[in-house]
Structure formats: structure tokens, C-alpha cells
Amino acid sequence: MSEVFRFGKAAVRPQQAPVPVMIAGQAIIATRCISVLLLVNELGYDGIADFIHRSAQAWDSTLIFVASQMLFFIELRCALTLMRGSRRGRLLYALSQAVVLLYLWAASIGWIYPEIFSISGASNGEIFHRLILHKSPDLLVLLLLFLPASSRQFFQRR
């Protein structure tokens, strides 16, 4: 209270993000970090070294590997910024998910040759079904960011 009398203005706290936005941001961070931990646990040190070695043997594989790492850090950055109310963070996360979905679909069908990241299936319908199942957590996060009225109002204020 003495700060109000000393400086003539009250300390204003920035408004907290609504619950759906906080859950979405934490879910992005948690799913990305847990997926890395599960991958490390599954492959082990030798498997990771072999994966990096195989990815570095051709330019196209190296480019896709580096792009996937960049996308990982972009998604983490989006999660942190959207919890602070950044519209750009929300839109960049939606754009990154669209790029990932298109790449996985094209690589799984066989349109993009270095199929480092692809989903196997007998037919295009089965591939699409597995792809939607694989991306369902990210689709739910996008719903939390775009559908609730509190989320839309939070991003419109800033």
C-alpha cells in the first residue's frame, strides 16, 4: 500500500491466462519433452548415434532432421509465448501443426522420398486414420486454443 502513496500509482499485475490456454501450453511442453524422453529410452545411446549418423549421410535427410529439431524448439517457444497471450505464438503453433501434418501425410504416401518420419499403413485410408490418431493430442490442444470463448477473448485483448 505504501507504493501507491510513494509513487502515485498502483502496481498492476498482468492478467493470468485462462485455464484452457494454460492447459494447452503445458500440454505442448509436456508432450514434446516426454516424446524426447521416450525416444531416448527406446533407442538408447547407440540407437540415437546411429539415427544421427544415418540422417547425416544425405543432404535431404540432414535437412529434414535439422528442420525437425528446429520445429521442436519453435513449438516450445510457441507454448511459452501463447501462455503470455501472444497471438503470433498461437498462429505459429497452428501453422507448425499444419506443416507437420502435411509432411507426415506426404512422406507416408510416398510423395517425399526421405521418409525419416512417416507412418506405415496398407492403404491411404489406413495411413490417414493412423495419422489422425497420431496427431489427436495436438488437435485437442488446437481446440483448446481456438474454441473456448475465454481463449478467444484472451488472444483478442493483446
Score class of each variant (00 low, 15 high):
residue 38 L to C: 08
residue 30 A to H: 08
residue 109 I to D: 11
residue 83 M to P: 01
residue 53 H to L: 12
residue 8 G to T: 09
residue 18 P to Y: 00
residue 121 G to M: 01
residue 73 F to R: 05
residue 68 S to L: 11
residue 70 M to H: 04
residue 19 V to N: 00
residue 89 G to V: 01
residue 113 Y to V: 15
residue 66 V to C: 11
residue 53 H to D: 15
residue 4 V to N: 12
residue 27 A to Q: 03
residue 53 H to T: 15
residue 43 L to S: 12
residue 123 S to K: 08
residue 25 G to E: 01
residue 46 D to Y: 11
residue 117 F to W: 15
residue 41 N to E: 12
residue 50 D to Y: 15
residue 119 I to D: 05
residue 128 F to T: 14
residue 77 R to F: 09
residue 78 C to H: 03
residue 136 S to P: 07
residue 83 M to S: 05
residue 15 Q to R: 11
residue 132 I to D: 05
residue 91 L to A: 00
residue 44 G to T: 13
residue 123 S to Y: 14
residue 110 G to S: 13
residue 10 A to D: 13
residue 94 A to H: 03
residue 84 R to Y: 03
residue 18 P to H: 02
residue 40 V to W: 13
residue 62 T to W: 10
residue 86 S to D: 08
residue 40 V to G: 10
residue 12 V to Y: 11
residue 33 C to E: 11
residue 39 L to V: 06
residue 84 R to L: 08
residue 126 E to I: 02
residue 105 W to P: 08
residue 83 M to Q: 07
residue 66 V to I: 12
residue 134 H to Y: 12
residue 106 A to D: 14
residue 99 V to G: 10
residue 11 A to N: 04
residue 33 C to T: 09
residue 109 I to E: 12
residue 53 H to W: 13
residue 88 R to Y: 08
residue 123 S to T: 09
residue 95 L to W: 05
residue 20 P to V: 02
residue 109 I to A: 06
residue 36 V to R: 06
